[in-house]
Design a binder for these strands. Structure first.
Lengths: 247, 247
DNA sequence: TTTCGCCCTTGACTATTGTCAAGGGTAGGA
DNA sequence: TCCTACCCTTGACAATAGTCAAGGGCGAAA
């Protein structure tokens, strides 16, 4: 299967219908933004559908659009030499490449749809204009950027201070929490992607999972069962300033 | 020598004199901020001197002050278990823990003075108030946060996509550029700190430097001489989306 | 239903990085 | 001036992570 570039889809993009505008206006980043400015941004926006596996954004390209995931999953990644690493996996309500849009710079990361997805595309120049004109929006962006910054600091610490085993153990605990505390859950994406997110080769992830059986972690396909949370926690040693999303 | 906590110095802090206010008002983060609001922030601020080796901020503490380095060098670092890693080393004009101040959260990183230093301390509540009241300041913070975010993305990519040798080679080239392109320069801080910044043990840095003699990099104490820039560049393979500070 | 491709796993090996220990050099304090 | 800490280096070894190759299994498409 050939992977189509996002561009071809963009060209077919259509403007949003009133119902769609209603649906998207309550996204977190628009909190407190004036009616007029909100419409200024949404009117020229596209709500675009993409199949799975499409490259939405390419590292090094100028930032044309602020992207907001409305539906589906998006992998944000970066390549260097023959290597590639995934920086994050985003779901509905999350937006990406805000920093590049605000500063009118080039994208630092690429993005592809992991599943069929609906993405809201806000033209960058309009976003920047509203950023200049609407103080509430500027504050929204600042808060959002601050939160993203903190997430990234945590991720950097996760990478520099932990081994692969520790990263996996902590990821499992964090994801369990996200899933409402169930001790049995399905992986939200392929193991290959998880490996890249955790900063290891897929083969290494396999082996690391294997070494977690000693801590009663069972893996059957995409289904994980955590048999002994205290034991896994003792291994993982989660810490608020890395693992607590609320901190 | 006993390392004093920052707090004891804070208590001795004095308010700024008019001349000092003049000196600090032209810092980048205050660009375009209204006269009144600027004074609102500077009046209750402290311009504080610290000796080398003082812990200025401790990871996990609530964010009391926005810190701006006026003079000296500050190491921003984080600890986990018995490990420690330095996230960045800041110089005059740079400020730290902005995100924590804006969001009224806990510090994610610690900071210590690497040299005797003068730090401008802006009470967090005042900063947040001006952030709410002054649109220009909000935009300044947003831009600054966006720039910091992008730096951090680059750093994460640097860590996840490169080996220690590549990180050192690229760091040397970047620092050479920063020094105006001289092929002979002094390290701006101890090798121990550089190792931690690059994400490796000090012993490993020593060995990595040793393996760079093959590329005509000579090390004598803190003095580095890069004998063959093209050769080192070929090894390092710098890329705009990781290494170019302007990108 | 069958086929094909890709994901995942495992073995064997290599490369990279960290740890422990020892010793030389150097700067600041007594 | 000497002494003492600490930084840096090096050797030897251990742990961690990546690569290459092979094969099983599962799911999407014909």
């Amino acid at each position: 299967m050939t992977i189509p570039r996002g561009d071809s889809y963009l060209l077919e993009g259509i403007e949003m219908r009133p119902a769609e505008i209603e649906e998207t206006r309550k996204l977190r980043i628009f909190d407190g933004v004036g009616e007029k400015h909100l419409l200024d941004m949404l009117r020229p926006a596209f709500l675009q559908r993409f199949p799975a596996g499409v490259e939405l954004v390419r590292e090094g390209d100028p930032a044309d659009f602020l992207h907001v995931v409305v539906e589906g999953k998006v992998e944000v990644f970066s390549a260097y030499r023959d290597r590639e690493t995934t920086v994050s996996v985003l779901g509905p309500g999350q937006c990406f490449i805000m920093a590049a849009v605000v500063l009118d710079r080039v994208y630092l990361k690429s993005a592809r749809s992991l599943t069929p997805a609906r993405i809201l595309l806000l033209p960058a120049d309009v976003v920047r204009r509203v950023f200049s004109d609407d103080a509430a929006f500027a504050r929204c962006l600042a808060s959002d950027l601050a939160a993203s910054y903190r997430m990234l600091v945590k991720e950097l610490k996760n990478q520099k201070l932990r081994t692969g085993l520790e990263r996996l153990a902590n990821w499992l605990l964090a994801h369990r929490e996200e899933m409402g505390g169930a001790n049995r859950f399905e992986l939200p994406f392929e193991k290959k992607v998880l490996a890249s997110r955790l900063g290891m080769a897929p083969e290494v992830l396999s082996r690391t999972f294997a070494s977690l059986v000693a801590y009663k972690v069972k893996v059957k396909g995409a289904v994980i069962e955590i048999g002994d949370v205290p034991a896994l926690t003792k291994l993982a040693r989660p810490t608020a300033t890395i693992d607590d999303p609320a901190t």
